[in-house]
Amino acid sequence: MLGDSLSEGVGDRVDGAWRGWAPLLADGLAAEGRSAAFLNLAVSGALSGDVANRQAPRALAFRPHLASVVVVGVNDTLRRTFDIAFLARRLDGVLADLDEAGAVLLTACLPDAGRMLGLPPPLARPLARRQRSVNAVVHALSARYGAVHLHLADDTWTEDRALWSADRLHPGERGHRAVAVGFHRLLADRGLAHGTAPEREPRQPPPTRAEAWLRLATAGTGWLLRRSHDLLPQLLLLAGAELRHWADGTGPAPLDARAEDALAAALAATMGR
Rank of each mutant, 00 (worst) to 15 (best):
G102C: 14
R190E: 12
A197I: 04
A37M: 12
D12E: 10
Q131R: 03
F82L: 00
A36T: 11
W223A: 11
V181E: 12
A147Y: 10
G272R: 12
A197Y: 10
R80P: 09
R226I: 00
R130F: 08
A197C: 07
R130T: 01
W223Y: 08
N75D: 12
T156R: 14
R90F: 01
H151A: 13
R80C: 01
G195P: 07
M271L: 15
S68M: 04
F38W: 10
L119V: 09
A219F: 09
F62P: 06
R177I: 00
W157D: 12
V70H: 05
H149T: 08
L163P: 11
G222R: 09
G3S: 10
R89I: 02
R203P: 06
V71Y: 03
L127E: 08
L235K: 05
C109Y: 11
D50R: 05
R161A: 13
A253K: 00
L47D: 12
H65R: 15
T156P: 08
A188C: 03
V104T: 15
Q55H: 09
M1F: 10
A219P: 04
G9D: 11
Q204K: 12
A56E: 11
L98S: 12
V104F: 06
A162Q: 13
N53D: 14
M1T: 06
L267G: 09
V51N: 06
W157N: 01
R209S: 03
